[in-house]
Lab assay of single mutants.
Amino acid sequence: NQASVVANTLIPINTALTLVMMRSEVVTPVGIPAEDIPRLVSMTVNRAVPLGTTLMPDMVKGYA
């Protein structure tokens, strides 16, 4: 099973992502692959992402 990116904290809308905000976890449904974490750093989220939420491609500006 592939690990996905999961919010390690509440990420407010329009926040630039940092490494400490994200962790990898095997979850269903599958979200952004964990190997993309380095690429996500400094990208911003377009909605509030609660703790434990899987990051989906449409949640990160410029990812999809």
Rank of each mutant, 00 (worst) to 15 (best):
Asn1Ile: 14
Asn1Asp: 12
Asn1Cys: 05
Asn1Trp: 14
Ala3Glu: 06
Val5Thr: 11
Val5Tyr: 02
Val6Gly: 01
Ala7Asn: 01
Ala7Ile: 04
Ala7Leu: 03
Asn8Thr: 09
Asn8Gln: 13
Asn8Pro: 00
Thr9Met: 15
Thr9Gly: 09
Leu10Gly: 12
Ile11Ser: 00
Ile11Met: 05
Ile11Asn: 02
Pro12Met: 09
Pro12Val: 05
Pro12Asn: 15
Ile13Met: 14
Ile13His: 09
Asn14Pro: 01
Asn14Tyr: 11
Thr15Val: 11
Ala16Asn: 14
Leu17Gln: 00
Leu17Phe: 02
Leu17Tyr: 01
Thr18Asp: 08
Leu19Gly: 07
Val20Glu: 11
Val20Thr: 13
Met21Leu: 06
Met21Lys: 04
Met21Trp: 03
Met22Asn: 01
Arg23Phe: 04
Arg23Ile: 07
Arg23Leu: 05
Arg23Asn: 07
Arg23Cys: 04
Ser24Gly: 11
Ser24Phe: 07
Glu25Asp: 14
Val26Asp: 07
Val26Thr: 08
Val27Ile: 07
Val27Phe: 02
Val27Gly: 03
Thr28Ile: 11
Pro29His: 04
Val30Leu: 15
Val30Lys: 08
Gly31Thr: 01
Gly31Gln: 01
Gly31Cys: 03
Gly31Arg: 01
Pro33Arg: 08
Pro33Asp: 06
Pro33Val: 12
Ala34Met: 09
Ala34Thr: 07
Glu35Leu: 12
Glu35Pro: 15
Asp36Phe: 11
Asp36Glu: 12
Asp36Lys: 10
Asp36His: 11
Ile37Phe: 03
Ile37Gln: 05
Ile37Glu: 02
Ile37Asn: 01
Ile37Ala: 07
Pro38Asp: 13
Arg39Leu: 11
Arg39Ala: 11
Leu40Asp: 00
Leu40Thr: 00
Val41Phe: 06
Ser42Cys: 05
Met43Trp: 06
Met43Cys: 05
Thr44Ser: 12
Thr44His: 11
Thr44Gln: 14
Thr44Pro: 12
Thr44Val: 13
Val45His: 00
Val45Gln: 01
Asn46Cys: 04
Asn46Trp: 08
Asn46Phe: 06
Arg47Gln: 13
Arg47Asp: 11
Arg47His: 10
Ala48Trp: 13
Ala48Glu: 13
Val49Glu: 01
Val49Asn: 02
Val49Trp: 03
Pro50Ile: 07
Pro50Gly: 13
Gly52Ser: 07
Thr53Lys: 11
Thr53Arg: 07
Thr53Met: 14
Thr54Lys: 04
Thr54Val: 10
Leu55Phe: 08
Leu55His: 00
Leu55Pro: 00
Met56Cys: 03
Met56Asp: 06
Met56Trp: 07
Pro57Cys: 04
Pro57Ile: 06
Asp58Glu: 12
Asp58Tyr: 13
Asp58Ala: 13
Met59Gly: 03
Met59Ile: 05
Val60Met: 05
Lys61Gln: 12
Lys61His: 13
Gly62Thr: 12
Gly62Val: 04
Tyr63His: 04
Tyr63Asn: 04
Ala64Ile: 10
Ala64Thr: 14
